[in-house]
Write a protein that binds this DNA or RNA. Structure first.
Length: 154
DNA sequence: GCCAACGTTGGC
DNA sequence: GCCAACGTTGGC
């Protein structure tokens, strides 16, 4: 099992929006970066991920989600009305993919980006590397467990 | 609102 | 294939 992190802007789609979906499940559409796409294609059923709020104050990790459907084509790329439309992606030859995630739980508290950055145990966390703008990225197992301990105060 | 750090585009 | 220009992300 692998661990991941999904970024989302709470003004657009926050963790409470996910919680309000039927079965607290939603497809993760709109990823238009090849590296992030490749990470999603590597996800397997049962993989867990942090839900991260970006572009807000304060940015940070707010919950845990689980992959409940593995990679399949992102249909929003075929919709001319969608802001994620990409005419280079077709049903016969899809370029962009998504997974379905289900909310496992919100964390007892937000673990802020500032706190993550300041923690020497999280040097290996891609999120805190300089200039990282990926919206989907891996989380090393040791970092995953460390962050959970931070959130749970133990 | 600013701007650093990216990724993408397109002329050559 | 190079690389300058451009657009985007996202913290601050």
């Amino acid at each position: 099992m692998n661990y991941w992190l999904f970024k989302s802007e709470p003004d657009v789609f926050g963790i409470d929006d996910l919680a309000a979906r039927p079965d607290a499940t939603e497809h993760w559409d709109g990823v238009r970066n090849y590296q992030a796409r490749n990470f999603m294609r590597a996800m397997r059923l049962g993989d867990q991920a942090f839900f991260y709020h970006s572009n807000c104050d304060p940015p940070g990790i707010v919950g845990i989600v689980e992959v409940v459907r593995e990679t399949y084509p992102d249909h929003t790329a075929w919709d001319p009305e969608s802001k994620y439309y990409d005419p280079a992606s077709t049903p016969d030859n899809p370029r962009w993919f998504m997974v379905d995630v289900r909310l496992v739980r919100k964390l007892p508290r937000l673990v802020s980006l500032a706190e993550l950055r300041a923690d020497p145990a999280l040097i290996e966390l891609p999120l805190v590397r300089r200039g990282n703008r990926l919206s989907v990225m891996p989380v090393p197992a040791a970092a995953w467990e460390h962050i959970l301990r931070l959130a749970e105060g133990g």
